[in-house]
Design a protein around this nucleic acid. Structure first.
Lengths: 300, 300
DNA sequence: AAAATGTTTTTTCCCGATAAAAGACATTAC
DNA sequence: GTAATGTCTTTTATCGGGAAAAAACATTTT
């Protein structure tokens, strides 16, 4: 089984959701764009939908026959790409106790444990190396550098440098730039979240990422934009790992974002700088507080 | 032929050079450390050297019998790792005419052209992607972003941010830090190069890299240190590509480095900042001037 | 003739296998 | 008893192959 058909299964599930909303499906190329897959995959999906009696398919006519039932969907776990599976497995180990800095990482062992080929693990590790948590010894194993305090400090140092610069660039953008409308939309979402914070505080993390990515994009610098991948990855797993005082933390962050947004809209460089610094400082604090003091790098 | 033995061949060649200098060779583990390879490889080397009559090998005694001759060496091209071969091939294409932004990169085609497996090409592209010159479309091809003016500007923007910060950190290092001795050594090398600039100006590029890496290390930030890999790669190929006014450029740069070194030694933040800015500005100019105006990004 | 569908070709993703290289264990020499 | 050598095991680097997915080409429909 050289390659799983998760792309097909995931697109199939998403296509089922489209079925709910309309009586018939659009053309094959249109569906392809909508689902982000090729026509080949679209046709596989349509074939199966016809087989299972969800639609009647005759050339251009794709009539919906019935609403999808829960059992029509492929199981969630079959829709993940190998890369996602490996990443989750790897992060679980990394954040678990006993993952000390200096530890060796064994490709073969990882592959066996996760139940995948070595090639996929190798490719994952190469991609993952840019996060600064692992390092390759030439012709030999990878070394874990550990999710330490030092790491968090180095990460936030760059983040602060980049975000302050991006925020300044953002505020200097012309009135007619499309970002101001994006910012308005985000502001509305923030206000809604603020009013429903008691029940929806877990939705913050996704909103947080969209907000900061919008700001970073204003830098028009690919290295700054790409670096947000590192931050997003760390915060994603960090949120999963450390749920302590989540609600309280997110409530504060939403208010900081709103102040930050107001500052951006004022287009006053001084105010932007101050609001940005205030938020970054508490973000840093949050990250640091979740790393036990003892988690220090071991001497090499 | 699943794996070439370039590690062995390269270590063998380097070991031949050691032969010139002494009557006998050290122990196997010692040789291993010296050459940066495992004992397994050391023993392969010793076996061949015994076979070809270069040494007499009996357990601990490894007596040199004769000086190595040119034909004892493996050809240079057999000592390169696959990754190096692929990188060179790829960069040649990238810097050649006709490599426009937006162009697709085909793994299979690249692999066939270079004569290697697809796995190696894939791994190379993943590693290379952090340089910001290519981008992956999920489940599909890579896209060339091109060595454009925009790229050079984004690269130098980050470089300047990072180096100014590193230089400031460097100047603030305590008197007894080992870096001051390193800086003194580099200063001497710079002075020597300055006096022999007419004949040795091509040696500058290697010295330049060592100097800037020393400064970046003072940041104690892995992201800053790692980013120098991007800069070094670009400048490496840029120097190879654009030899125009090389001597003149390097002569200026050496003088700027000497002023920069003096500023660092003065430990005066203002002077350091000024000297650093002066040098970075001319480095940026050099890079930009080598990119033809016409080389602009194509609209996506 | 523009845009869809039908068909074929190419490319990507991933596995298992194999030689090179590293690493671990056992034995010998000093 | 420490540090070397000798031997055996494990891991890494790389290839070729095959299914999934994309892309290209040919044909039909509106």
């Amino acid at each position: 089984m050289s390659k799983s058909n998760n792309v097909y299964k995931d697109a199939y599930n998403r296509c089922l959701r489209l079925l709910d909303e309309s009586k018939s499906l659009p053309s094959e190329p249109e569906l392809g764009t909508l689902l982000g897959v090729s026509r080949t995959t679209v046709r596989s999906i349509l074939s199966r939908m016809a087989e299972t009696g969800l639609i009647a398919w005759d050339k251009r006519n794709k009539t919906v026959l019935r609403a999808p039932r829960p059992e029509d969907f492929f199981p969630e776990e079959e829709t993940d790409s190998l890369a996602e599976i490996i990443e989750r497995s790897f992060m679980r180990r990394l954040l678990a106790e006993g993952a000390e800095a200096g530890m060796q990482i064994n490709e073969l062992e990882l592959a066996r444990e996760i139940g995948v080929g070595t090639t996929s693990v190798r490719e994952f590790l190469i991609r993952f190396s840019r996060f600064g948590l692992i390092e390759k010894r030439r012709n030999s194993h990878w070394v874990l550098k550990g999710f330490t305090r030092a790491f968090a400090l180095e990460l936030t140092e760059i983040r602060e440098m980049f975000e302050l610069r991006s925020a300044a660039a953002f505020a200097a953008l012309p009135e007619d730039s499309a970002v101001w409308a994006d910012l308005d939309r985000l502001e509305i979402e923030h206000r809604r979240l603020a009013s429903e914070i008691a029940t929806r505080f877990t939705a913050f993390s996704e909103l947080d990422e969209r907000f900061h990515r919008l700001i970073h994009r204003a830098s028009h610098n690919r290295f700054i934009v790409d670096f947000y991948d590192v931050i997003a990855m760390i915060f994603h797993y960090h949120y999963q790992w450390n749920k302590a005082e989540e609600r309280q933390r997110n409530e504060v962050a939403v208010q900081e974002h709103l102040a930050y947004i107001a500052a951006l809209k004022s287009r006053d460089p001084g105010k932007v700088d101050a609001a940005c610094r205030r938020h970054l400082k508490s973000a840093r604090q949050t990250l640091l507080s979740s790393i036990p003091e003892g988690r220090q790098a071991q001497p090499a």
